[in-house]
């Protein structure tokens, strides 16, 4: 028996949920960025599975663009973390309350 599209979509949903839990529960900036990466990857997996199901390449091309956007997002996000760390010697997002009123 070969895995069908349902198997891949279930795996993608599990990875997306785990990534969402990481983003929502962790307080370290690096762990939050890692959770976002995991969620993007789960979305990529679902896109490739649906592209296979529908028999065209558009989904795979879209995954390629998603990868480029994820690379840009990580570069800017990590630069933000470095700038925050220089400012307050910590990347705990709970301490980022200077802009809260």
């Amino acid at each position: 028996m070969a895995p069908t599209i349902s198997h891949f979509v279930i795996l993608a949903a599990l990875l997306l949920g785990i990534g969402a839990a990481g983003v929502l529960l962790r307080r370290s900036g690096i762990a939050i960025l890692l959770g976002i990466e995991l969620m993007l990857n789960a979305g990529n997996l679902a896109l490739v599975a649906f592209a296979r199901q529908h028999g065209n390449l558009e989904g795979q091309v879209f995954v390629f663009f998603t990868m480029a956007v994820a690379a840009a997002e990580v570069a800017v996000g990590l630069a933000l973390l470095v700038a925050i760390y220089r400012r307050q010697q910590s990347i705990d997002v709970d301490r980022l309350s200077v802009m809260r009123w």
Binding site: T4, V9, I10, A13, L14, L16, G17, A20, A51, R52
Partner: peptide
């Protein structure tokens, strides 16, 4: 998110792939 995704995938009508694409 997890339960919704799993339910969606389980109730999805699975057809054989339209034509095998090689990426």
């Amino acid at each position: 998110v997890i339960i919704g995704g799993v339910l969606l995938a389980l109730t999805m009508k699975v057809l054989p792939p339209a034509s095998p694409v090689t990426g």
